[in-house]
């Protein structure tokens, strides 16, 4: 897919909680085709402390509005500056980058999308596409606490939603992999994105039960286009760039100790 460097303008900013904002951005030209799972490399500003671009998952593309959504969690200086931006401000982005999730071959397949924290971002776009295509999606979303569960209302519009929180303030108490939904392992497809320990636990569950499973990795990146070779992950084919060969990987390809 051809990649573009675009100046995107913020149209809406939704403060989801203290740590997360949803930015909706538009382009003066028609946005290029973007697939679920792909990401943007965002230039934050020209300050010396935020030197490199920031890879941010694409949360959704609203074709009718020509809008792209980015779910931004404040983890450092770069994301903090992004979260401080306001409607009207411009963000320079390279899009679309990376690969996409594999669509199940069987329309009646039982699909679960398991997200943790800000990792729900790409799962929303993928779930929305699956829902539109006629798949029945189940979402299992985990967070530390109720206020950390992001975009619940949006997820409820496109599928069945289950939650876990570490403090028990919403849904079942504990981690996503402890949810009663998974007691009976009858899912055919699992897609997951979130903190690495969570994804490893999900991958381990999938491997044990021989369920197809794709994870979306979030390694630190230099360039986002396969030039610097900084974001590699160890795979059955050697070290591969997460930015070009991923971010979505089948767990069979990863050399995770699960």
């Amino acid at each position: 897919m051809k990649k573009f460097i675009l100046d995107l303008q913020i149209t809406h900013k939704v403060q989801l909680n203290k740590q997360n904002v949803l930015l909706k951005l538009t382009s003066k030209d028609l946005l290029p085709e973007i697939l679920p799972g792909q990401f943007a490399e965002i230039r934050v500003d020209k300050s010396p402390t935020t030197f490199l671009r920031r890879p941010i998952s694409i949360n959704f593309v609203d074709i009718a509005q020509n809008e792209l959504w980015l779910l931004v969690q404040i983890v450092g200086e770069g994301t903090k500056r992004m979260a401080e931006m306001n409607p009207g401000d411009l963000l320079n982005a390279i899009i679309p980058l990376g690969n996409t999730f594999t669509i199940p071959t069987d329309k009646n397949a039982k699909v679960v999308l398991i997200g943790g924290g800000v990792g729900v971002a790409p799962l929303y776009m993928f779930g929305e596409k699956l829902n539109r295509m006629g798949y029945k999606c189940v979402f299992l979303l985990g967070a530390r606490s109720q206020s950390d569960l992001l975009l619940l209302n949006e997820f409820e519009k496109i599928g069945e939603v289950y939650t876990t929180t570490e403090d028990g303030s919403h849904g079942e108490k504990g981690y996503v992999t402890q949810h009663s939904l998974l007691y009976n392992p009858d899912f055919n497809y699992i897609y997951t994105c979130g903190p690495t320990p969570m994804m490893k636990a999900v991958a381990s569950y999938a491997a044990k039960n021989e369920i197809f499973c794709e994870v979306s990795l979030e390694n630190m990146m230099g360039c986002g286009i396969g030039a610097c070779l900084c974001c590699v992950t160890d795979t059955t084919e050697g070290n591969l760039c997460v930015c070009t060969e991923g971010p979505v990987f089948n767990i069979n390809k990863l050399k995770w100790q699960i």
Binding site: L52, M220, C228, C231, T233
Partner: peptide
């Protein structure tokens, strides 16, 4: 090449340790 992590952002620069992959 070397194991991940291979890069770190620093003030006005970056460190890399790709290791000639």
């Amino acid at each position: 090449g070397n194991q991940y992590p291979r890069m770190a952002e620093t003030a006005s620069g970056m460190l890399n340790a790709v290791g000639l992959q």
